[in-house]
Computed example of a mutant assay.
Amino acid sequence: MRRLTIALAAALLWPAGQALAWWDEGHMQIAYVAYKKLTPAARDRADALLKLNPDYSSWIAGAPAGQEKLYAFVHAATWPDDIKMKTDYYDDQVTDSTARQLVPYGHLKHAYWHYKDTLLSADETPLPRPDPVDAVSQLKLMIAKLPANSDASDALRSYSLSWMIHLVGDLHQPLHAIARYSAALPDKGGDRGGNEVQVVAANGEKLPLHFYWDRIFGGYSSVFGAIRDADQDSGLSAVAPDAGKAQIVDPATWAQESFELAKTVAYAPPVRADKQPAELTREYETNARETARKQAALAAARLANLLEALLR
């Protein structure tokens, strides 16, 4: 409960538009399951790149002997969210000339890199033009830079990997692939992926729909806690992803899948298209948890397959 309270408090204080996905627990569990699937050679190459991240020493602080590489990889999954709280990293806009640029550890937060909003009108409310820079556009650039035979420096490859581990998880959270507009929410951003839509969970807590989905795996976590939770009998390690889907390593396809799940599961009744709170049903919450588990397991498998191919 303490971890959840801390995460929810942090989310409520977060600047508008800077959404988290899966919170620490979800991202770390995805990274952990992915790491277990990598070959030793791919793990070593990933670790060599992550060592160039300026936060590497803090990632491995307190790691059990022999587990430093694992702890670094798992902790790296939260780095693009962690920098949002760093005083030496700065807000920027999707319209800036630097929005597309991959600058190794260049101190910009790039909050708009965390999602790919396909726009949806709930009631024929006019839609604006989608943002030109998003999680899909940037992840494709990072994928192109990661191989050793690319024209990228090791610093750029390190930066790309630090973001990739996180963004694969982001794109499998359905509400990071959609923005729904309605007469009640017609302005730029619409409902911001459910951030402007209120729901009431089974425990009576009222919170934004986006937060409800982000916290399905828990909130703030240590690496040890995330690994423990993933390895529990009913944890993420026990979820078998669809083998065929796991081979799909196209970020645009991932985003489209998440968009469809947002429409059919995340926005399913009783969720409303306005700001009036909706009391979630047992059926909704069961479907949400099962969908989240399947998406996280798929994200872990796809991350492993992608890195195995790129880190040869």
Rank of each mutant, 00 (worst) to 15 (best):
A72M: 11
A72P: 02
A72F: 11
F73M: 08
F73V: 03
H75A: 05
H75S: 05
A76V: 00
T78V: 12
W79P: 00
W79I: 00
W79V: 02
W79C: 02
P80V: 10
P80I: 10
D81S: 12
D81T: 11
I83L: 06
I83W: 01
I83N: 03
I83S: 01
K84W: 13
M85Q: 14
M85Y: 15
M85W: 15
M85L: 15
K86C: 08
K86A: 10
D88N: 08
D88Q: 03
D88V: 03
D88F: 12
D88E: 06
Y89N: 06
Y89V: 10
Y90F: 13
D91Y: 15
D91W: 14
D91Q: 15
D91K: 15
D91H: 15
D92G: 12
D92A: 07
D92C: 11
Q93F: 15
Q93T: 12
V94I: 12
V94M: 03
V94H: 06
T95S: 14
D96R: 08
D96F: 03
D96W: 05
D96A: 12
S97T: 08
S97I: 03
T98L: 08
T98Y: 03
A99P: 02
A99H: 01
A99I: 00
A99K: 00
R100V: 01
R100T: 04
R100Y: 00
R100Q: 07
Q101C: 11
Q101Y: 09
L102R: 08
V103I: 14
V103E: 05
V103M: 04
P104Q: 07
P104Y: 10
P104G: 12
P104E: 14
P104M: 08
Y105P: 00
G106N: 07
H107K: 14
H107P: 00
L108S: 04
L108I: 02
L108T: 05
K109D: 01
K109V: 11
K109M: 04
A111W: 06
Y112M: 00
W113F: 04
W113R: 02
H114W: 01
H114T: 07
H114P: 07
H114Q: 09
Y115L: 12
Y115H: 14
Y115P: 03
K116F: 13
K116T: 11
K116Q: 13
D117P: 11
T118I: 10
T118C: 01
L119V: 13
L119K: 10
L120G: 01
A122Q: 06
A122G: 11
D123G: 06
D123W: 05
T125R: 05
T125F: 10
T125N: 06
P126V: 09
P126K: 06
P126D: 03
L127C: 08
P128G: 06
P128D: 12
P128S: 10
R129T: 12
